[in-house]
Amino acid sequence: MGKSKSSAATPSVISDFKEISKMRLSLSVVFSSLAGYLLGVDTVDFQTLILLAFGGYFMVGASNAFNQIIEKDLDALMSRTQNRPIPSGRMSVNTAFVIASIFTLLGIMVLYSINKQTAMFGAISIFLYTCVYTPLKTKTPLAVFVGAIPGAIPFMLGWVAATNDFGIEPGTLFALQFFWQFPHFWAIGWFLYDDYKKAGFFMLPTGKQDRGTAVQTIMYTIWTMLVSIIPVFGFTGKLQLSIAAAVIVFGLGVWMLYYAVRLFKLMTVKAARQLMIVSVSYISLLQIVYVLDKFIR
């Protein structure tokens, strides 16, 4: 009897650990930073690649754990989050705080072992996400603007890890992921509108599921498309894109724009959910095209 109890408890401890660090989100962030690294290097150093993957994971895991400690009472109000480890009572705030603190220290130490600038940007992203974005979510839709900064750091962070330099190239990668986050976030804010409302979160630019929000979503999708092809014009230093790759990247942008326009036309939760799914595929495919283009050229 005791044996079956312990084996039943194990998956829940593992799943709670995954949940507190938001494993799927963290892995997508790691993917971004590794793509940025591959774009920045001349020769791939696998040790740095592994350090970046772990450092990036710890960094995002820390931000998510701190976020869930701060929002524990609000998470309890929303059906999407009420079963998270802290609001459900499966994990104490102290345990979560220990995990978050260890992740912060490990993240910054691992990134510091790559170079100082990488560690600095990692620390900035944890600070902005935890101390600025999280408290602003219940105050103003501008929280999305603040949240887009730490969200855009990973792609750029990879380049900085590769080159120990911050210039036009990582700046362009940052801008691309920064603009992309608005249609992505607002699509989530739209289809989770009622749930967010319970906790008093204001995620949509107008505060409502209206034409104004849909128009801004289209606008930022277009900005993302424009930034995504800047490297083809040859003035972003070592960050370059072939004409073929630029056409593919622009095509991916048109695909995402189609769903943003569709949201404007239909104004439905389903259309917002589809835009969110497409936006996630878009950024991953774009990063793959950028990296493949560099190594094939």
Results as ranks from 00 to 15, higher is better:
182 F>V: 01
31 F>P: 14
258 Y>P: 00
134 T>L: 06
193 Y>D: 13
56 G>H: 06
118 T>Q: 08
14 I>L: 14
231 P>W: 11
99 I>E: 00
161 A>Q: 05
131 C>I: 09
289 V>G: 12
11 P>K: 12
129 Y>W: 10
24 R>Q: 09
202 F>E: 07
129 Y>V: 03
73 D>L: 02
195 D>R: 01
293 D>F: 04
41 V>E: 14
147 G>V: 00
258 Y>R: 05
43 T>E: 12
50 I>A: 05
53 A>L: 05
93 V>E: 15
263 L>E: 00
290 Y>R: 00
287 Q>K: 12
246 A>N: 06
239 L>N: 12
58 F>D: 03
286 L>S: 14
217 T>P: 00
273 R>S: 13
161 A>M: 04
289 V>S: 06
54 F>M: 04
204 L>T: 04
37 Y>V: 12
132 V>K: 15
292 L>K: 03
12 S>T: 13
153 I>L: 03
250 F>C: 13
232 V>R: 07
151 G>H: 11
139 K>I: 15
218 I>V: 10
60 V>A: 14
49 L>H: 09
213 T>A: 02
149 I>N: 08
297 R>D: 06
111 L>P: 11
294 K>V: 09
30 V>S: 07
194 D>M: 01
105 L>P: 00
46 F>K: 00
163 T>S: 13
59 M>K: 10
270 K>Q: 06
52 L>M: 07
170 P>D: 05
270 K>Y: 06
52 L>C: 08
263 L>N: 01
118 T>Y: 08
235 F>R: 05
26 S>C: 13
46 F>R: 02
294 K>A: 10
225 M>Y: 03
26 S>M: 08
206 T>I: 02
47 Q>V: 14
215 V>A: 03
